[in-house]
Amino acid sequence: MEPSLETYLALSGILFAIGAVGVIYKRNAIGMFMCIELMLNAVNLSFVAFARHYGDVTGQLFVFVVMAVAACEAAVGLGIIITFFRNRESIDVDDASIMRN
């Protein structure tokens, strides 16, 4: 017997909630970035669960697109973080309140 669709959705929801709390709670940019990845993964899980439920490949393709977007996000986001660190010697997002430099 397999777990039902709702079970997967509940797991996905819980992971998403933890990720969302993390984004608010974390103060450094890398931590926030990782929590966003966690939220993306929670969404991926629900996509795959739906794909399995309806026997359709579309959900898995969505996951594929999400992964590609996450990879772009990693490349650009980490680039921003490194540049920010170079200018401020910190990656605390509270220090990002000034647009100068």
């Binding site: 959705l9 996905s12 998403f16």
Partner: peptide, 13 residues
């Protein structure tokens, strides 16, 4: 927010 989202997940369940 976290409690709200987890409540939502349980509601879905």
């Amino acid at each position: 927010l976290g409690l709200l989202l987890i409540a939502q997940a349980i509601f879905v369940f």
